[in-house]
Nucleic acid binder design. Structure first.
Length: 844
RNA sequence: GCCCGGGUGGCGAAAUUGGCAGACGCACGGGACUUAAAAUCCCGAGUCCUUAACGGGACGUGCGGGUUCGAUUCCCGCCCCGGGCACCA
């Protein structure tokens, strides 16, 4: 009798070895006539080892890829390594190992882990971003952008992380701290930096979010906030007196120019350039302004700039409101930010919360210039509670604009300002150009030269790649490590042949991940980043069919990728305007309600799980324990249950497979015993549930639960000897086992392959057709209808599935419990929901 | 403060269109097998009250209201947890 215990390690290593000997197994097919499907999981940083979050991410993607293969698609399912980055340099210092060696060792280890976990990737397309074969195209794109004015150099205040010893993009600053060092405040430094003009695309990036119906609303909202489009007007206030250069003026940005007659002061950011001029003329101001700057910096560092106590100082100067020629006092205030708008505002205390608070504190006048629109009582209309900030209202006390609504006035006043040369309607964005220079070694060298004679000169395309030199001494201080490598720095100017100095900064690693998924389609092209026709095949008009990753990349990686795609489209390289059609963001893996971390000692590692329970169990549990979009609380006892379930599947098949029997491949008889019908019905209901979820909401936890129910049903047919009941004809027993294995295959490929063989199947399981759901066979013949009396269930009746109301009522009225519940009461109403329930409403 | 999620047994969760709340799994209890244990198989189980027992009853999806024959599901008001944004002018 074949009833051995499931030897997970034996079976999994057997198949793992077989799969590795067959590289074509998971490869996309060339010249395929099948529909294409591109499923992608976010590539990992090779930090050393996979964690459970990776396992969950890849288990979702791999299940989908396998489902798509089984449904006859030509699937592209690649994997790669986001392998530039600072941790490699830290490790180099700590272990005295070159970043390249450390990185490649990690890749080897993580790749072995992935293979052991059974993820089906097309390794022939593997992309490793730290290889010159890849990063030369980063450099190529950079040159293309430079040609088009999309890459430029400017001196600017930048975010500097003292731990990384490098610059951070705005996106990499979290609450004033470094995104990698959450306890390290970012410093401001003035540096010459390379920027990519993402702001050129700000409007399109915002607009196209509307097209991304396959993205989570949450991610779209985050991007919308990040882009931060705001319509308003610029208005010039001329400076009175002699401060500043002759004829100088302060330009304010406002979204509410309709309230400009209510302005009672002008407020400047402490770091506004004109403040420096004022200090020069009036040194008494310096101490106070310095204090405001300090307050602002401190608040930014702590991350509560939103709660800073408002302070300000009057400069003693006045500026002229161009609408009514009124001289307004100029103040410097700590709640005005230099990096938004123009760093200057007009203060309208009657119609702005912040201005109101400030004006109250410093006893500045309030002037009401907008009243509520009709509908309000006369009294509140004339005297609304202040500040009155409603979006629309009636403009009053505003010269020729009085009587207009706010929305009319916004337009008219902007036009008026433009006609008279002191302002215009404008749009500002919160998003800034992407600073890509990093003063680090382990990244893509920026392909630029500095020549004393010719200035900034791009490296000619034919000289790419600019190779990252080996054997570079790495320290975390003193700026770019490359600047200390003379062989690298000293170059020849391609224009004049004279000496030139090479750019020693490297690129932000988000450049690498901004376009890597295009490279997978044509990973070995040494003439171009990729062949456009090949990309067109895999991306279609709308991008990657399904992208899966963590929500932590909602703005950084995903906004850069969208930008890069639009640039490539404008370069004529791709046709799609967006990189990703459908995006899925999975939840985090936590343990005992907390993030897994070494300090909490609650880390569960994939290696440990594979060794104890096997890859199938680890994958299945990570899909079973919660719906994939929610956080998953890892419980060791939970994975034990999955292990038990896999053992049940294994033992059932080992006991009931009869591939040698003559009947094994016969068609299932039409006439079946009730018990056999029950099994057949359950099978088709299960096929429907699993298939529907793959096509729809991806609640794999309920798919797996459904498969468990099917297995429980099968166990219920077994007699005491562990033999399936003779009431189940062999052809049906064969079919239900085959389909069970097929349904399980996307989630637990190892056991599925093993048992597929046990069932006498020799073909490739990955290409076996997905089981077909037949509604007729899934149908119940008899159903139970709950009968309610006044909304409470008082009994149940069994009726044929197609019973009409009359029959249900007849059975209900014959039921003792129902009779008792309604005896002597008048029936007011009968509600019958076909196939669902009968509710009798009786007099109380 | 604003915008998204979420709140259901001892625990992870399910209920897809307003129709039997708690599928599936964990932990737990009982039984079978065993010299014994492990493994395995079977059975039980929301809470409370009641009954010798079979059974019966009430309550129950964060809280308070509402709509409805009927609400975990829809509406209004609140509380708590997680995430994002935040003097953005």
């Amino acid at each position: 009798m074949r009833d051995e215990r499931y030897d997970v390690q034996r079976v999994e290593t057997k198949w793992s070895d077989r799969w590795q000997q067959d590289p074509a197994l998971y490869a996309a097919e060339p010249n395929s006539t099948k529909p294409k499907y591109y499923v992608l999981e976010m590539l990992p940083y090779p930090s050393g080892a996979l964690h459970m979050g990776h396992v969950r991410n890849y288990a979702i993607g791999d299940a989908l890829a396998r489902y798509m293969w089984m449904n006859g698609n030509n699937v592209l399912h690649p994997m790669g390594w986001d392998s530039f980055g600072l941790p490699a340099e830290n490790a180099a210092i700590a272990n005295n190992t070159p970043p390249r060696v450390w990185t490649l060792r990690n890749i080897d280890n993580m790749k072995a882990q992935m293979k052991r976990l059974g993820f089906g990737y097309d390794w022939s397309r593997e992309v490793t971003t730290c290889f010159p074969e890849y990063y030369r195209w980063n450099q190529w794109f950079f040159l293309k952008m430079y040609e088009r004015g999309l890459a430029y150099r400017k001196k600017s205040k930048v975010n500097w992380c003292p731990k990384c010893c490098t610059v951070l993009a705005n996106e990499q600053v979290v609450n004033g701290n470094c995104w990698r060092h959450e306890d390290t405040p970012v410093e401001q430094r003035e540096l010459e930096q390379w920027f990519l003009r993402i702001t050129n695309y700000a409007d399109e990036l915002l607009r196209d979010l509307e097209k991304l119906g396959g993205w989570p609303e949450k991610v779209r909202t985050m991007q919308r906030n990040w882009i931060g489009r705001s319509e308003g007007a610029l208005v010039d206030f001329e400076l009175g007196g002699t401060v500043g250069p002759a004829g100088s003026k302060i330009t304010v940005f406002t979204t509410r120019v309709d309230t400009i007659y209510g302005a009672t002061s002008v407020q400047l950011a402490p770091e506004h350039p004109i403040v420096a001029d004022m200090i020069a003329k009036n040194p008494d101001l310096r101490a106070k302004v310095d204090q405001l700057i300090a307050e602002q910096r401190k608040a930014k560092e702590v991350g509560d700039i939103g709660e800073i106590e408002k302070h300000g100082v009057f400069t003693g100067r006045y500026a002229k409101n161009p609408f009514n020629q009124e001289a307004l006092p100029i103040w410097v205030a700590n709640y005005i930010l230099m990096d938004y708008g123009t760093g200057a505002i007009m203060s309208v205390p009657a119609h702005d919360e912040r201005d109101y608070e400030f004006a109250k504190k410093y006893k500045l006048p309030l002037r009401l210039v907008v009243l509520p629109l009709g509908g309000d009582t006369e009294e509140t209309a004339m005297d609304p509670p202040l500040p009155f900030v409603a979006e629309d209202g009636l403009v009053v006390n505003s010269g020729e604009f009085s009587g207009l609504t706010s929305s009319q006035a916004l337009k008219k006043m902007a036009e008026h300002a433009e006609k008279n040369g002191f302002g215009k309607a404008t749009v500002t964005f919160r998003i800034k150009d992407w600073g890509v220079s990093r003063q680090r070694y382990w990244g893509t060298p920026i392909p630029m030269l500095f020549c004393e004679k010719d200035g900034i000169v791009p490296v000619p395309e034919k000289d790419l790649p600019v190779l990252l030199p080996e054997n570079v001494e790495i320290t975390l201080t003193g700026g770019s490590p490359l600047s200390r490598v003379p062989e690298f720095v000293n170059a020849t100017c391609p224009k004049c042949g004279g000496p030139a100095r090479r750019e020693t900064d490297t690129m932000d690693t988000f450049v690498d991940s901004a376009w890597y998924f295009y490279r997978y389609t044509d990973a070995h092209n040494d003439q171009k980043p990729f062949d456009s026709a090949t990309v067109a095949y895999w991306f279609g008009d709308r991008g990657i069919d399904q992208y899966i990753g963590g929500v932590e990349h909602a703005i950084l990686h995903l906004i850069y990728s969208r930008f890069w795609t639009k640039v490539m489209r404008d370069l004529g390289l791709v046709k799609n305007g967006e990189p990703v059609e459908r995006l899925f963001t999975q939840g985090m893996v936590i343990k005992e309600g907390a993030k897994m971390s070494k300090s909490l000692g609650n880390v569960v590692t994939p290696d440990e799980m594979v060794a104890r329970y096997g890859a199938d169990a680890a994958r299945l549990y990570s899909l079973f324990a919660a719906p994939p979009d929610r956080d998953l609380d890892w419980q060791d006892s939970g994975i034990e249950g999955i292990q038990r379930f896999l053992g049940r599947v294994y033992r059932f098949v080992m006991r009931n497979a009869r591939p040698g029997s003559a009947e094994w491949r016969q068609p299932v008889p039409k006439q079946l015993s009730p018990q056999a019908r029950q099994v057949q019905r359950k099978l088709h209901q299960t096929i429907k549930r699993v298939t529907d979820d793959f096509r729809g909401r991806w609640h794999f936890n309920t798919c797996i639960a459904a498969i468990m129910e099917l297995v429980n049903e099968l166990y219920a047919t077994e007699d005491n000897n562990g033999q399936s009941s003779s009431a189940i004809p062999l052809p049906l027993l064969a079919e239900v086992q085959r389909d069970l294995i097929l349904l399980l295959a996307p989630f637990a490929p190892y056991i599925a392959h093993e048992l597929w063989e046990t069932l006498g199947e020799h073909g490739n399981l990955l290409r076996a057709p997905w089981p077909k759901y037949e509604p007729e066979l899934a149908k119940e013949e008899e159903i139970e209808i709950p009968v309610q009396v006044n909304g409470k269930v008082r009994g149940r009746v069994r009726v044929p599935a197609d019973a009409d109301q009359a029959l249900v009522e007849q059975r209900a009225f014959a039921d003792e419990k129902i009779k008792a519940a309604i005896s002597g009461k008048k029936i007011l109403k009968k509600i019958y929901v076909p196939g669902k329930l009968l509710n009798l409403v009786v007099q109380k």
